[in-house]
Design a protein around this nucleic acid. Structure first.
Lengths: 195, 195
DNA sequence: AAATACGCTTGATTAAAATCAATCTACTTC
DNA sequence: GAAGTAGATTGATTTTAATCAAGCGTATTT
């Protein structure tokens, strides 16, 4: 299963630990491959996020819609990222977010209960979780710091530095929303900073 | 040691697991009590964050200073919170942040190496880390979502709801900075929203 | 007690970003 | 191929927040 190979490679690379044949057996038994077509939802506001998905192929946006009908993009996710509203996923509460495919996607999905029961006993997996927890903490801190202390232009430059492929891959209106800006403002920022 | 009792209570309450006498022995052997006076630094920009500290008493701010000399508060921390720049703490890189006591503090501090070697084997501690990891993920997501999609006024209201004691305990200029606003703007927001 | 520092408020002005509106282009889709 | 849609850009205007400046009250310090 080439789908699963992407997950194995990811875990082994991130943790430096090798998965045994038995480990892989557990993964194939409990992760379910799923395809999500462009513009389809992985999660809709009000629903409980029953699955977390490892993205083998494709991209998605996690966003809210405010009372005026404007979208606000909290997260853009691509290959080798985990897809979920973790608040809803951990607590089994209705989500405030929508998660929608921006491209046709292939994911490997699993429920919280299955992770706890079958996947957590695999040392490489808990090791992965620890690494991800640290990375998340650091990334969240950095993004928050940008958000409170930098201008739109500085935040955009940081995004270009940190995730250059995002700029190539996603339309500017999504990038703008991710940065907390309107598309018009980002367009003007790009124009003035290119001079 | 009544200092340590606060830590034990915290872990037991958060995880639902009891600490054995031996466990507590390990804690007292490796966590070092430390007092930090108001206006003193737990961490200064450019230094490596060698310790993480459990706050037994007092409060602190984590902030950066921009090129204009303005402070931007990333975090306000009180009793039962962990104090560190985790990026610097995990990676042993120089920190971009300052952490300064807002009140006289009592903390229990420990190095990353000691955590890994002595504290992580304690099941209740790793269990605590898992809970904290989840809570952090959720809180970071929520704060980020506020930041990109809500006005200053809405963010302030959310803070009042989520952390009412912060409003009592910290001066408004710090609250403003935490929200990414100037003190003047927060003052005007409060004035207009009280009507 | 006087002096100082700190925090909060208010006013006037400037700067940044949002909003509203129109146009243009490149893709889909039928 | 025509029609429709999505995304980007530009202009004019409004809204929001930052900045600059002053004044006031309350702690804190000496």
């Amino acid at each position: 299963m080439q789908n699963f190979q992407a997950l194995y490679d990811y875990i082994e690379k991130l943790t430096g630990k090798m998965l045994s044949v038995d480990d892989k057996q557990v993964f194939t038994a409990h992760f379910k491959p799923n395809k999500i077509r462009k513009r389809q939802y992985f999660l809709q506001e009000g629903d409980v996020c029953k699955y977390t998905g490892f993205i083998v192929k494709g991209a998605a946006k996690t966003y809210t819609v405010d009372e005026k009908g404007n979208e606000h993009i909290l997260k853009l996710s691509v290959e080798d990222w985990w897809l979920a509203d973790f608040e809803s996923f951990y607590k089994l509460t209705p989500s405030r977010f929508n998660i929608e495919a921006l491209e046709d996607m292939e994911i490997l999905q699993i429920t919280h209960a299955s992770v706890e029961e079958f996947i957590k006993p695999i040392p490489a997996f808990t090791s992965m979780q620890n690494v991800l927890s640290q990375n998340n903490t650091i990334a969240a801190q950095k993004r928050m710091q940008s958000s409170i202390s930098q201008t739109g232009e500085e935040r955009f430059q940081e995004l270009v530095n940190d995730y250059p492929h995002f700029i190539q891959r996603f339309p500017q209106n999504l990038i703008a929303s991710y940065l907390g800006l309107t598309p018009e403002t980002l367009s003007r920022i790009r124009k003035s900073s290119s001079k």
